[in-house]
Design a protein around this nucleic acid. Structure first.
Lengths: 203, 203
DNA sequence: TTTCCTTCTTGCACTGAGTGCAAACTTGCA
DNA sequence: TGCAAGTTTGCACTCAGTGCAAGAAGGAAA
């Protein structure tokens, strides 16, 4: 958790942010999305309405925050493996993502947001930002100089698409169940989707 | 335009919708996104503020409307070719999309929205809805019964990703220029991205 | 044309999102 | 301890978004 490296200020900010997200997710679970106000979230998080808006510009953004966090962590891990073909790195990273601590908050955010367009749009934005960062990561790799922009963009987009598809199929099948057998199934789906991609979706 | 098949009522509604979208895009072009209110759009479109909200739930949705329209048209064409491998249909359909009337409003919406997250989220939603419809379309094809859910989801997502990547590279290169040579370049990019996908992004 | 029904538009009133500002408070550092 | 920088809060304001009911316009009949 690297708590010692953060100043008191940073710890406080992180804690405030956490409590806002938790409050928003809790209300969404209890009452359903759209059935509460920013005032409610702020009160439940123990901060003022104004402070909520210092952290998020809308309730939807707060609900979707875990998805951004999850994908950011995934990207860190991708950056740790720069000397490998992207699809191989993707397989390894993605495999390691099916891990309780990383995936639990995201699964909750996903479940709560399911079918709710205003929040789903933010989830899509999270994947889009991740895609853009993958483009940058590919560019930063050795031997990528010769690749044209289209190749890099499309490859990054397809890697994201495959990971997202596996997550969606898993959520549909298991509803975010975090039991070991369910996480094993997620790994299987993630591996299979990247394998499809590598084979050009040959039947 | 098929004007005779629509009743007066339907013509009026379509015209109102058009004028709202045009007004929103016009204001975005003149003043920039976020620098005008719904009141401004309504006034510019010659309707009441309340009527705006009968058509769209936010200014962002109105700005992104052409992207939804573009992708809906693309899907119609995909539905016209049910007896072909999906990637072949995608190539044909996508090729036909690089056509002035279809692409012009979408290009304008894309340009205006560039880098503006609230609108970009709606654009992403448009692609996401298109993806879901492609999943349904694949399911409706012959010989698709044996395909598992993951394969279908991931394939649809990758087709969308490749089309979107080609559009983005084209917008970045040509800024939505609609000259024949520019549209030829778009077709080239669309073809190349699907070719990459078919080859599993082999270098 | 008149009549009646349905659909669309509008005005009004209201809740609540989102933001700028300045005062109060907390932390970091000397 | 005291000052500088960062954070929270309250206040006031604009404007997004919605429910409702009255009015305008289209459609189909006599």
């Amino acid at each position: 958790m690297t708590p010692e490296t953060l100043s008191r200020r940073e710890q406080n900010k992180a804690a405030t942010r956490e409590s806002i997200v938790a409050a928003a997710l809790g209300l969404a679970r209890e009452r359903g999305l759209g059935a509460f106000t920013v005032e409610d979230i702020a009160e439940s998080a123990g901060v003022s309405r104004r402070t909520f808006f210092n952290y998020f510009t809308s309730p939807e953004e707060a609900i979707a925050a875990p998805t951004f966090g999850f994908l950011d962590r995934a990207l860190e891990r991708l950056g740790d493996r720069p000397d490998e073909p992207l699809l191989d790195s993707a397989l390894t990273v993605i495999y390691g993502l099916a891990d309780n601590d990383l995936i639990a908050p995201m699964a909750e955010s996903f479940l709560v947001a399911h079918g709710h367009e205003p929040v789903a749009r933010f989830q899509l934005q999270a994947f889009e930002e991740c895609r853009e960062k993958i483009v940058a990561a590919i560019r930063g790799r050795g031997g990528a100089d010769s690749l044209d922009g289209l190749y890099v963009h499309a490859l990054a987009a397809c890697v994201i698409s495959c990971g997202k598809s596996a997550l969606e199929v898993w959520m549909a099948e298991r509803g975010g169940d975090l039991a070991p057998s369910s996480l094993a199934r997620l790994r299987e789906l993630l591996t299979a989707s990247i394998t499809h991609l590598k084979s050009g979706f040959a039947v």
